[in-house]
Simulated scan of single mutants.
Amino acid sequence: MALPLSPTHLLIPFAGRGSSACAAALATLQLPNLDALLTRLAVAHDDTQADTTLTPPHERALARALGIDAADGCIAWGAREAQQTGLSRAGSDEPWAVLTLCHWEVAIDEVVLHDPGDMAIDAAESQALLEAARPFFQEDGIVLRRSAAPGRWLARGELFRGLATASLDRAAGGPISAWAPLTDALKPVRKLQNEMQMLLYTQRVNDERIARGLQPINSFWLSGTGVLSTATPAAAEVATVLDTLRAPALRDDAAAWAAAWQALDAGPIAELLAAYRRGEAVQLTLCGDRSARRFAPQPRGALGWVKNLFTRTQATTMLAAL
């Protein structure tokens, strides 16, 4: 998913996290610039849903900013990227998906999806596995194409039309059964995953990775499925997505998550606060497990601003509610 850029609208995924260690870290987190900024802004939009949705709040928020309206699990990031890179024409009704190479750990009673962001897959490995996998997918009418990111492929096929799939940001670090139950709709996907597991086991790429002490690539995760039938705004008009909280949040690494938050507060948040003080029309979207809340300046008199200073909610309290 390409990340749009706008210096006056920041979108921060995993700003709140319900996992035990990260949630506990909020109690001692100091974010003075975020506190000051939220004093001056008000909630302009609040999207709160269950934390069992296939699409996480930050993806819903980005889709909303792009003008994409889709059902849960059907935001067509694959089709959008295909159109942006010239693999598909604008306005096409071709169904696409994103395939992300990954490692599944088989435990006693569950299979856990490791975060592919930790796997260090290079372009040569990705291309070699793409060529090996292509015939298996072609048998099911699926065309594979590489993307700009190693270990991440684009796939075109009727299987993906209307198929709801869980975002990688929902599934990474947890059991796959929670996010890809063996429903009739997903049986063809599981078949492909099983075939790929057998194929990948025999690949020299994995022998070399294991020799280097790296996790073998033994499966893929399917997401971003569907058709993108509407035009979307230019990337520069949308938001800057800051994803430095993602990796520590998925690992529930409280120290790293808190450090990443402090760096955001001292850097981009401080810059956004300065932009607000210069009179710029800033926006801030903070996302957690359940909610995406967009904050923007609201017109009010001096008395209202002073009242808000004394009735403000501390930033960490608001983050805990995400």
Rank of each mutant, 00 (worst) to 15 (best):
P4Q: 03
L5S: 13
L10Q: 13
L11H: 08
G16W: 02
G16H: 00
S19D: 11
C22H: 04
A27Y: 07
L31M: 04
P32T: 06
P32I: 08
L34E: 09
L34A: 01
A36W: 01
A36H: 02
L37S: 00
A42D: 12
A44L: 07
Q49C: 01
T53D: 03
P56D: 00
E59S: 02
L62D: 07
A65W: 04
A65E: 12
A71I: 02
G73E: 09
I75E: 10
I75V: 15
I75L: 12
I75Y: 10
W77D: 05
G78A: 08
A79I: 08
R80S: 08
T85H: 14
L87M: 14
S88K: 09
L99Q: 07
L99G: 05
C102V: 10
C102T: 15
H103A: 13
I108A: 15
I108P: 10
E110R: 14
E110V: 11
L113P: 04
H114T: 05
H114R: 13
D115N: 14
G117W: 05
G117P: 04
E125Q: 11
E131I: 10
A133W: 03
P135G: 11
F137V: 05
Q138G: 01
D140S: 09
I142L: 00
V143I: 13
A148D: 10
A148N: 08
A149R: 15
A149G: 02
G151T: 07
G157T: 01
L159I: 06
L159G: 05
R161S: 14
A164H: 06
D169K: 01
D169G: 09
A171K: 03
G173D: 09
P175E: 12
W179Y: 15
P181V: 10
A185P: 12
L186C: 09
L186S: 06
K187M: 14
P188V: 08
V189I: 15
L192K: 00
Q193V: 08
E195K: 15
M196N: 13
L199V: 13
L200Y: 14
L200C: 12
T202S: 15
Q203Y: 09
D207M: 14
E208V: 05
E208S: 08
A211G: 05
R212V: 04
G213W: 04
Q215P: 11
Q215L: 14
Q215M: 13
N218C: 07
S219V: 05
F220S: 07
V227C: 03
V227D: 02
T232S: 07
P233G: 05
A234F: 08
T240G: 01
L242D: 04
D243Y: 04
R246D: 07
D253C: 02
W257L: 01
W261G: 00
A263V: 09
L264K: 00
D265M: 01
P268Q: 03
L272Q: 02
A274Y: 00
R278T: 06
A281G: 05
A281K: 11
G288P: 04
G288Q: 05
A292D: 01
R293I: 10
P297L: 00
P297H: 08
Q298R: 14
Q298T: 13
G301D: 14
W305G: 13
V306C: 12
K307I: 12
N308M: 12
L309G: 11
L309Y: 10
F310N: 07
F310A: 12
A320P: 09
A320I: 07
A321N: 10
A321L: 06
L322H: 03
